[in-house]
């Protein structure tokens, strides 16, 4: 492991007894797990098992959906992000997000990356910060000559890397990725996967994916979710990816990763 022992042992995120409801429907039930710093954590499971809902708990995006209730704790560096004094806006600057479909703003490439810097009152040199973010997202060489062109002129894969650059520009500690490759072709997918391997040196990445092979390729830890009988999402198993894939403890996990289910 390239990380120091201290970091390896410290968990950046901890989830304790998390329950989520959409109105009367319980979407997640009693989830508890710890996410170690500077690793990639994959969330897998059949459709509708609440993986995305789980991911959106970390940056409080669920707050935007009327009728959502939550109980339990989500600790970022030991502090509960659902405490009454915490502003979701601040949480989202510490925990970035990349979405299922690339969603660049209809602005220039430069303005997309600078967006977060500007609203968060970045005090440094914005040009340098944009360049370094694009470099870290492995996009700089492709766009350096057309920074003022609309982001919508980029290909799907480039747009998604732009969205990653936009997320890392404001230096979050964690990046959430909600099926980031589901709208991309295999080549673009591979580029994003390579990028994830590099980004985990600096960030903790939580990725939701439908693609079991992708989870095996990119993640250090895997959380397997499924639906209980009442259709609410539960966490079946969480552990090191190689252990989950080579020696699953739960029958349901085994069925899923061997393709007998979902």
């Amino acid at each position: 492991m390239q990380n120091s022992n201290y970091l390896y042992n410290s968990n950046i995120l901890e989830v304790k007894n998390l329950n989520v409801w959409y109105r009367a429907f319980q979407a997640l039930k009693e989830i508890s797990l710890s996410i170690p710093r500077h690793h990639v954590i994959a969330c897998i499971g059949p459709s509708g098992c609440g993986k995305s809902t789980f991911l959106r708990c970390f940056n409080r995006m669920n707050d935007l959906i009327p009728g959502t209730r939550i109980s339990g704790q989500v600790l970022l560096d030991g502090q509960d992000i659902y405490n009454s004094g915490v502003d979701p806006t601040e949480i989202r600057t510490h925990i970035g997000m990349v979405f299922q479909k690339p969603n660049p703003f209809p602005k220039s490439i430069f303005d997309n990356v600078a967006f977060g810097l500007r609203i968060n009152g970045f005090k440094g040199n914005i040009k340098e910060a944009v360049e370094s973010s694009l470099r870290r997202a492995a996009l700089w060489d492709e766009v350096k000559d057309r920074l003022n062109k609309s982001a919508l002129t980029l290909s799907g894969g480039q747009q998604q890397r732009l969205c990653i650059a936009r997320a890392i520009a404001i230096q979050p500690a964690v990046i959430l990725m909600d099926e980031p490759c589901s709208a991309l072709d295999p080549v673009a997918t591979l580029k994003i996967e390579d990028l994830i391997a590099i980004l985990k040196e600096e960030y903790t990445i939580v990725i939701v994916t439908h693609n079991i092979q992708q989870a095996a390729r990119v993640s250090d830890y895997t959380a397997f979710f499924t639906m209980a009988d009442d259709r609410s999402g539960i966490l079946v198993e969480f552990g090191k990816t190689n252990e989950i894939f080579s020696n699953p403890k739960d029958k349901r996990t085994e069925d899923y990763i061997t393709g007998r289910f979902g």
Binding site: E90, G121, F122, K123, Q171
Partner: peptide, 9 residues
């Protein structure tokens, strides 16, 4: 967290 001092939020 990373580089928080760089921002005036």
């Amino acid at each position: 967290l990373n580089y928080s001092k760089m921002y005036n939020r």
